[in-house]
Amino acid sequence: MPGDRGIPMVVVDGANVVGSVPDGWWRDRAGAAARLRDSLATVPAAGLPGVPAPVEVVLVVEGQARDIPPGPPGVRIARAPGSGDDEIVAVVRVSAPTRRTVVVTADRGLRDRVTTLGAEVRGPSAVPR
């Protein structure tokens, strides 16, 4: 059973989740990523629908958002040196064989890449915004 492999990891595709709501994020990409980081603060202790707490949260950021400062405890920032999707795949490649791993994204290509590695996928609405 996937949930029996320790604390689940939730990997959030920062650019995709931020971009899922047309709220002007493009005017301040780093600020939008920082707001998402802060909104994820409750997830480690609360979990997600169908993913009970506790969970480890990894927010993958890229481009202009890569320089956001660390945020609340329990939300780790993974700073992609290039493609955020490639960084997410690298995180999943390490995590999925040993524990339940859930990727939050709406990117179809990324969904295919991570499910092949054993991860589950949820859409952007699965996390608080």
Rank of each mutant, 00 (worst) to 15 (best):
R79P: 03
N16W: 02
V55F: 06
Q64V: 12
V114N: 00
L48Q: 03
A34C: 00
V60Y: 00
D86V: 03
A45Q: 07
I77F: 06
I7P: 00
D67M: 05
D86L: 12
S125E: 13
G6V: 07
D38C: 05
S20P: 11
T42H: 01
V58F: 00
G50V: 05
R5P: 12
P44Y: 07
V127L: 00
R35E: 15
P52F: 01
R129Q: 15
P54V: 13
R29T: 06
P52C: 05
V51Y: 03
I88V: 15
E62V: 03
A45D: 12
S83W: 04
A45L: 07
A53K: 08
G63S: 12
P8L: 04
V57I: 08
R37G: 12
L40A: 08
G6D: 07
R66V: 15
A96K: 08
G14T: 11
A65I: 12
D67Q: 11
G19Q: 01
A34K: 13
D112Q: 14
V92L: 05
T98K: 09
R99H: 09
T116N: 09
D86R: 13
V55I: 10
R100A: 07
V94T: 15
V102L: 07
L36M: 10
A53P: 15
T105L: 02
L59F: 10
D23T: 12
I68V: 14
P69C: 08
R129I: 01
R122V: 05
A80W: 06
R111V: 09
P49T: 13
V21A: 14
T105W: 06
A126D: 04
V114I: 12
R108W: 10
D86S: 09
A80T: 08
V21T: 14
R79M: 01
P69N: 08
A80V: 06
V51E: 02
M9W: 15
A119Y: 01
S83A: 15
V55R: 06
A32L: 00
G50Y: 09
I88R: 01
S95Y: 09
V102N: 01
